[in-house]
Design a protein around this nucleic acid. Structure first.
Lengths: 163, 163
DNA sequence: ATATCTGCAAAGACTTTGCAACCTT
DNA sequence: AAGGTTGCAAAGTCTTTGCAGATAT
């Protein structure tokens, strides 16, 4: 029989932190030296992130930075997004093709997203109902330490109108 | 500004079919020549799939086949899983590291999964409550053509007891 | 002054594609 | 025999890592 436990791989990028928050307090060993220091790149990234209305991939964000004339490496973008994501300052989700998409958190509380499949724009939605449902289902099945992933996709009003 | 529409890439593997079923009937142009023909490999894969209690990656499934003495290529496993997934005969989800995991569908109806983070075992759960919630949220935000992704992860009773 | 941060190139992991040989029907 | 299948090798993607040079405090 196959061993369920997968081959151990690195911690994994954004790793659904935003989505399974329920069971992961997003604590990071303090003192680890990756606090964002005020570099030109860090600020530029932050600025772009602030302006994005939805989820975008590291590569898209990098492209946007470049198009604004910023000289910044793709590696740096990845690294920053990773740290920001671990710190809970940006949400990270995975799209259907396996790419990790990021967006700046608007609220601190646990939440989910309704994202436009076409333009990427997204809306944060609360999910008390879902949380309760998840907990109940888990309890019934005897599972512990349960977290959940909930993402909604659709076409936003604008894109709907445009088509 | 970044264009929300991503660079077009191939259709993407399992592509959350199982998760966004709500808005995608899983129709495939009939006549496309990838109906599974009774080959040794196809049957072996099917047999293994039947025995799996949860979600496993194409590579794990391939390893399992090999360990059973089947001579089958990884490519073939990928191809079959892709087709089965498109046909709705297996569910496909993506784990937090970006791998696509597959499991044989037990029920035809739309459903979600509660999967063990440790051993991969999973339980199918209904989600009427979630469906309703999703529809309502979408309607309020003016989004159309909405689909959703809902996955629950935790530790199954056995793994909980073992630790 | 020094602990960090950057970014290029290279490496890794998963998945898909090209294509000749093989097997079903 | 004809056409779908198979599988090796090669190619593609996204993401991470090694390391030397640049930088912020």
């Amino acid at each position: 029989m196959i061993r369920g436990q997968r081959v151990v791989r690195k911690p994994a990028a954004g790793c659904y932190r935003a989505c399974v928050t329920t069971s992961r307090p997003a604590t990071r060993p303090p003192g680890r030296g990756t606090r964002i220091r005020g570099t030109r790149q860090a600020e530029a990234l932050s600025a772009v992130l602030d302006g994005l209305p939805g989820f975008f991939s590291a590569q898209q964000i990098h492209a946007e930075l470049r198009s604004r004339g910023e000289h910044i490496g793709l590696t740096t973008v990845y690294r920053h997004l990773q740290v920001l994501s671990e710190d809970g300052r940006v949400d990270a989700i995975r799209d259907s093709s396996g790419e990790t998409l990021y967006r700046k958190c608007r609220s601190d509380a646990h939440h989910h997203h309704l994202t436009c499949r076409n333009c990427g724009r997204s809306v944060e939605v609360e999910g008390r109902a879902v949380e309760r449902w998840a907990e109940q289902v888990a309890a019934e099945a005897g599972f512990t330490d349960v977290g959940h992933t909930v993402e909604l996709f659709g076409h936003c009003p604008d894109c709907t109108a445009a088509s």
